[in-house]
Design a protein around this nucleic acid. Structure first.
Lengths: 125, 125
DNA sequence: CCTCTGTTTTGATATCTGTCAAGATAGAAG
DNA sequence: CTTCTATCTTGACAGATATCAAAACAGAGG
């Protein structure tokens, strides 16, 4: 029917790719899509979006689980589950320090997502 | 087909919010999270990520379903389903012109998502 | 040792999701 | 009108997901 111009997957790297990057006018390859989709999926829940935002906007750059749990009317295990999903998506990481566990953003992963949106936005006009 | 008109009282102004925007050091509210999470969720599938990317990078700014279907080993109904999910998430819109149906990106919606990632990235420093 | 608190894991359940086959719909072209 | 092609909708089903209660785990402080 119509031509399907296949696009070679482009190797784009670096953490700052989100902002002011030259546009790649090439569609996402299957492999990259399989890598990034789970991360977007992890953001596809209102609770997790807020959790991520609260972690990102914490003054020290990291947030304790007890602080995060306080903002929701959900049980501890449920919050813990959502944090695990975000962590397995590579969006956050954590460390136990004494009694408390602290979470922080993984900027490289975030910027990879931002870059995809930026490219789509750039391509859209 | 096109159901959404104008975004009601959204503060962020237009399509450039993704790039070099002053950071909002405030965590996402529940209402905004409930609005945006479904859009991220729609991106949380490899097939839909590629569909969106192919639409965005189409040279005319829009893509015909027949072109999109050709790139996957999936049935027509399945592709149609994914396009519907993207459309209901506000990320794309479509129009029938004669025999074919064309899809294009909704930049305002895309930039709203990009803005969230950008803020989180800025907050994480 | 024990207990207390903060966090995660396990188990159960109701709901949601991706996929395809089959049927429906909308134009185009006889 | 009738047929053909492109696209969407419906129905069905295996697999995934969000949530909570209960149990387990990890340190802190007796």
């Amino acid at each position: 029917m119509s031509k399907q111009k296949v696009a070679p997957t482009l190797e784009l790297t670096l953490a700052d790719a989100a902002c002011c990057t030259p546009l790649t006018e090439v569609a996402l390859g299957a492999e990259k899509a399989r890598d990034l989709a789970p991360a977007f999926k992890a953001l596809g829940d209102p609770v997790r979006l807020q959790l991520l935002s609260q972690i990102a906007t914490a003054e020290s750059g990291e947030a304790c689980v007890c602080d995060l749990t306080a903002g929701f009317e959900l049980t501890g295990p449920t919050i813990s589950h959502h944090l695990k999903v975000l962590r397995e998506a590579g969006l956050i990481d954590c460390e136990r320090r004494g009694t408390w566990v602290y979470y922080w953003i993984v900027p490289a992963r975030m910027s990879a997502l931002a870059h995809v949106l930026g490219s789509a936005l750039a391509g859209a006009r």
